[in-house]
Design a protein around this nucleic acid. Structure first.
Lengths: 250, 250
DNA sequence: AAAATTATTGACGATTCGTCATTCTAGAAC
DNA sequence: GTTCTAGAATGACGAATCGTCAATAATTTT
């Protein structure tokens, strides 16, 4: 047998495949926002796509795996938004605010993707997703958390924040994350929220963040600074800022 | 046509039906914790139960409706735990802590039920559940939130807490709820949590609560009181306390 | 006890998932 | 340019699951 170089990496095939995968994902999103989650069927996806069912199953090992893939997409979008949010000037506590805002904006402007994120966190979906894709998702989540940790570390370094006794950076990042996740999940798009229906998401969310950061004694405190103004300013900044294209060096 | 009394309310049939429904729900739980969410099938539930498929569909209009029913069960259990937690003596801030602890304990000791709660919050499930059961769930959630609100109102009345300017009771309850929900969801049973794997749930959760309540200036502050001790004390209290039976007047 | 109303059954149709033998394609070897 | 081959694509098919409904049984009413 001739020493075949194994051909391991398919040269340009890979690109086409990734491209098509993205195409399938956006198509799935369209179906979701048009017909709801009950309307997303593999057969339907097949019918509306340009490829056959077999090919689709060549991308996603199950319908649930498709959901996990959508959640990965979701996280990537979120990562982009985080990057943009961090470019808004402001002191460290304002930057935390910017991240929370970006998260919130994402959940509001991309309800479908956000709901995919929630769905993909469900045991029924996890059980039937491919391990590799689950790992990918976890890696992306880690990137997001790392951003938060860096922000906290930076605040400590510059002196606007002191690490509480016996606590880790991780713990602080977790608390922030939990707060943001919980708030956005409860304010979730669908369902007119009988529970907290009369609450205004924006200011309630800001309240939670302020309480948390005040509790941490993260300077300047909410009594020393108008974070409502900061929130407003950042909202317009995030909305208007020309999103820098993907692979752009600068 | 003879004036039929409509027979509206079936006298004792209802009891039997409710009893059987509970039986089906616990059976479904057993299947879930034994074979995972992928293993729960209507046919399988039928096979293991003493009734036929038709009868089961006479209780739950779809498989998703069954999940919503499980989440209702979950909330009822949680309500019980809240009641018990409130009986533990302590000042108002300790009582808030007790509620958080009860929530956390529930998510840890009844992982399956908690996961049902998460699953039932998913659009795919909501879309296919019966409106009446969704309403029931919402009502129970409302009860839980009301308990939180009362606690806050009481603290304000007795002077250990002041309502922040321009904020409502609802908003404060929401923030607490979001924090608790987020933390427990992220520390969810399944999946060894690569993100926050090395974190110790207990103390991290306590940290979050303390930050929030300190931010609210809810007395006594965490620097003036050993809430870690309170947490420990309540944990044993919750674990050991003889659970008062359901319909017991006292 | 007969009639009438309500509940139960489980076989069946319909839907959806996921597979696999076959067909096709793109590039390597000659 | 032709042949060869590894891998990709296809879509008909089998399997699994959902949910229904005509027939039957149980219970209440008269």
């Amino acid at each position: 047998m001739p020493a075949k170089p194994a051909s391991e990496a398919t040269p340009k095939r890979l690109l086409a495949k990734q491209l098509r995968e993205q195409e399938l994902l956006t198509l799935a999103q369209h179906i979701l926002q048009q017909d709801g989650f009950a309307g997303l069927t593999m057969d339907r996806l097949t019918a509306l796509s340009s490829v056959s069912k077999g090919t689709i199953y060549n991308h996603f090992c199950s319908k649930e795996d498709l959901f996990t893939a959508l959640s990965v997409d979701s996280l990537q979008r979120q990562l982009q938004l985080f990057a943009r949010a961090l470019q808004i000037p402001g002191h460290s506590r304002e930057q935390v605010l910017a991240l929370h805002l970006a998260y919130h904006q994402f959940s509001m402007t991309e309800p479908t993707l956000f709901l995919c994120l929630l769905t993909a966190n469900t045991p029924g979906v996890i059980e039937k997703s491919s391990p590799s894709r689950l790992a990918l998702r976890q890696q992306l989540e880690m990137q997001l958390v790392t951003i938060c940790q860096q922000l906290i570390a930076q605040a400590i370094a510059e002196g606007s924040l002191q690490l509480p006794a016996k606590q880790s950076l991780d713990a602080l990042a977790f608390v922030q994350w939990a707060q943001a996740f919980g708030s956005n999940a409860l304010f979730k798009p669908t369902q007119q929220l009988g529970l907290f229906g009369q609450l205004e998401p924006q200011s309630t969310m800001l309240l939670g963040i302020n309480l948390l950061l005040d509790g941490l004694n993260w300077k300047p405190l909410s009594k020393e600074w108008d974070y409502h103004a900061s929130w407003q300013r950042m909202m317009t900044a995030l909305a208007s800022e020309p999103l820098l294209a993907d692979g752009q060096t600068n």
